[in-house]
């Protein structure tokens, strides 16, 4: 009989455990800190004139929607542009400037610019603490009029220094986008 009482009380304690630990608090949404939603390239013609922006935005991160490109104007033929890059996390309010984070960890990051067609060259114009390129600023040169693509890749923890190719650099890709541009 005593054993039964013990069993009964054990069952009771168990049920208590079960019924007490239920809480109905709503979970907090996660603040996605590392997300990059927007990349904007600003090209300033060295000969003077208005800035040209190439941007790509993916507000749902790794959600199903693909990135949306916005390339408003065409580039001028046979021109040199000073370029800079801005990265934003627009899911935060106000948008967080991720460029600063990359600049702070510039030894662990590198942008790679690979151009085809009417863009003839893209050259780095900045360096990290070890004298290796980063790519937050650059210089872009166009050739004769025509179509062009500009592939922009940001690698985290690449091999540095590298020979400038993605294959040699390795690391993880944080951004990989290709702009279709018209040069006229």
């Amino acid at each position: 009989m005593k054993t039964f009482k013990t069993i009964l009380s054990l069952v009771f304690v168990g049920v208590l455990f079960v019924s007490c630990s239920n809480d109905d608090d709503s979970p907090e949404p996660v603040n996605e800190e590392e997300l990059i939603t927007t990349m904007t390239l600003t090209l300033t013609p060295q000969a003077g004139g208005a800035d040209i922006t190439l941007s790509v935005q993916d507000l749902d991160g790794d959600g199903p929607n693909p990135p949306i490109f916005a390339v408003a104007e065409a580039l001028d033929a046979n021109a040199t542009y000073t370029g800079s890059i801005t990265l934003l996390n627009e899911t935060e309010n106000p948008p967080e400037n991720i460029t600063l984070e990359v600049a702070e960890e510039d030894e662990e990051h590198q942008f790679f610019y690979i151009a085809t067609g009417a863009i003839t060259a893209v050259a780095y114009s900045d360096q990290d603490g070890n004298g290796n390129p980063v790519g937050l600023t650059f210089e872009l040169i166009t050739g004769a009029a025509g179509d062009a693509t500009l592939q922009v890749t940001l690698r985290h923890e690449p091999k540095k220094p590298n020979d400038g190719t993605l294959a040699d650099a390795g690391g993880e890709t944080d951004i990989a986008q290709t702009f279709n541009v018209t040069v006229q």
């Binding site: 168990g14 049920v15 455990f17 079960v18 630990s21 239920n22 979970p27 907090e28 949404p29 996660v30 603040n31 996605e32 800190e33 590392e34 991160g61």
Partner: peptide, 21 residues
């Protein structure tokens, strides 16, 4: 058998939860 289970996904990770609460 009776079983109760509670899963808590900590939001402090800064990464969206793969498995929810």
């Amino acid at each position: 058998l009776g079983r109760y289970q509670d899963n808590f996904a900590n939001p402090a990770t800064g990464v969206r939860r793969l498995i929810p609460d």
